[in-house]
Design a protein around this nucleic acid. Structure first.
Lengths: 357, 357
DNA sequence: TTGAAAGCGCTAACAG
DNA sequence: CTGTTAGCGCTTTCAA
């Protein structure tokens, strides 16, 4: 079936060791031999047997990605970044979609044993404590994306900063009566974004009022969904109509904001004239909805995550690297200001280094 | 590092052959021995080395998925189906995201050689003729999803039927002046959907008028995107205002329809009162937009595709199996009729069979 | 039913 | 610089 290095060796009149060396760019082969062998390889269109290589070299050249399943733009865009970079480096990606905690653990186990993968990317979920010791002991490279664990490399966006920026922006536009629509406070992003909102208010000397934050944690994704946003906005409009109505609202995610915009429309409340809106994430839809929002550089997060995994492989014993992206405010039409981008995205804590061929 | 069958053998006081047999449910081992070995395996939490198994058995237990990259709900939902089924069967999925033809071919090559995968799923692209012979000769199982090639298993939706249903529905609602918004006719779905639209018109004795179909193939995905829909609708509204304006429009995809809805709103044209709209696909957003549309059973397509690949592995020489899904009309609010589902989805040409453990 | 032994195709250490 | 050899961990004959 397949053609092996033995075939090449015979054909080129050399030993299999030499063949292997040529194929792997090992320095100690004469230019002459190398050329000869490579020529034969090309002629017979030789392809190495991936699993034999992996068995012998103890490297799988494959990463696994464990993702809470992704009817969600955030993951798609991040994954796109991961995939593009992996493709450049000739790395295979195994996709593990997760619907519940048990499944996540199953895939962690699967990734951990059997030499299947050289590293794992774990997305947006609390990393199970029961696997901490196992990963440490196995020294299997791991990067946690959009979540945090002190013991492992992680990569996330400064939610607090982003929320602060968004709220500040609303304040700078003259709003004093600013509401917030949030998702379940059991999730870290929701908590951090609330915190940022509070801080910005405090900075400006505006008293925080829990009455002005509406939390709907219904449905999927802990309330980070369109219906929740829709309901929350209805609730907010209902609550505050007449006296003291919020003139602006910061919403914890774009999907929710999309729903909220819909609710506003139904109530005949104009955006931004009657109420200014700022979201969070900058998913594709945000552009179409002309939503002012806080941009997470998702694609870049993906490429960086991949790179972090590679760096970790090269240097398994370095201290955990926690990189953060500072999100940027993207001003469109739902806030009533001049469109544009405010702060620029930057990340810290990691060297990108050269692509290792 | 890893614990191997040698460890198990020693611990259980048997030979490695026996261990292997126990682990693989080979019939000829005594119940007693099997239990003993399995107990030891569990105790030491043994995990087989995937690559060693794959090298020795010449099976990779992995499929590759080659997907034109997926900022597109269709793929995500199909992939979700594929992934869920694969996970049930313990099969790994390699994700190859493709941005251009050259890349697609690179991944085909990569899949073809080196024993990396047992089968490949190729999505929504014309299968390159230059690889036909190679796949036939290698007998590497292949299923083409959302596209067609006579030589290989394929799985697609009856676009023509779906478009016909959509148009018929509009006709049944009393519309006679029905427009269509389409994407690039270079793509098969666009052509087939146009054809279905024409046929339904013809059935009802309504003359087809190319003036009433607007094609925007700008931007990504051959015009299957939101902006294109937005532009097309503007164009349609501009063209027909005053005399003879279309009272209904069939749109070739939901993403486009979402854009179109936006354009209508901007023009102050009410949906469905002033113009009825039917889309195609039934992506998540369609539900939120209350869009009447033609549903492609994407998740089910994913699970079926995976199953087809497995069937093909079991029976490498059977004639190509071409399965089709009949899409169903989902009636929501943009068409002005009573909500509900009209025809039911069914597929033909394949036995699902039992999951092979 | 079981143990021993021969590969699967490759890498890497060891002699030349 | 190059050929030979010993594994990598598992499956699968082949005898026993």
């Amino acid at each position: 079936m397949g053609i092996t290095i033995y075939d090449l060796a015979r054909e080129a009149g050399v030993g299999i060791g030499t063949v292997s060396r040529c194929l792997n760019n090992h320095p100690s082969v004469s230019a002459k031999t190398r050329e000869k062998v490579l020529a034969v390889a090309k002629r017979l269109s030789y392809q190495p047997h991936a699993h034999a290589q992996r068995l012998a070299s103890k490297k799988s050249n494959t990463f696994s990605t464990i993702i809470p399943f992704f009817t969600n733009y955030f993951f798609i865009e991040v994954l796109q970044g991961v995939q593009d970079r992996a493709s450049e480096l000739g790395i295979d990606l195994i996709l593990y979609g997760v619907n519940n905690t048990a499944q996540a653990e199953y895939y962690l186990r699967r990734s951990l044993h059997g030499g299947r993968v050289d590293g794992v990317m774990f997305f947006s979920m609390k990393f199970p404590e029961s696997y901490v010791a196992k990963f440490e002991q196995m020294k299997l490279p791991l990067v946690i994306v959009d979540a945090y664990h002190e013991k492992f490399d992680s990569l996330l966006v400064k939610n607090l900063e982003g929320a602060k920026q968004a709220t500040r922006h609303l304040i700078s536009l003259g709003h004093r009566n600013i509401g917030m629509i949030n998702a379940s406070l059991e999730t870290t992003p929701a908590r951090e974004r609330l915190e940022g909102y509070k801080l910005a208010l405090a900075e400006a000397g505006i008293p925080f009022d829990m009455e002005k934050v509406v939390i709907t944690s219904n449905g999927k994704q802990d309330g980070f969904n369109r219906e929740a946003g829709y309901e929350s906005m209805k609730e907010m409009l209902r609550r505050g109509f007449g006296r003291n109505r919020a003139t602006a609202v910061f919403i914890a995610s774009d999907v929710q904001a999309i729903g909220a915009l819909e609710a506003a429309r139904e109530f005949g409340v104009r955006v931004p004239e009657d109420i200014a809106v700022v979201g969070f994430d900058d998913i594709e839809l945000a552009k179409h909805a002309q939503l002012t929002t806080v941009r997470q550089p998702m694609y870049e997060m993906g490429t960086l995550a991949l790179q972090m995994l590679i760096n970790r492989m090269k240097n398994p014993c370095a201290a955990p690297n926690h990189s953060t992206f500072l999100p940027e405010l993207v001003i469109r039409k739902t806030c009533g200001a001049q469109p544009g981008v405010v702060s620029s995205s930057l990340h810290s804590g990691i060297e990108l280094g050269e692509p290792s061929s």
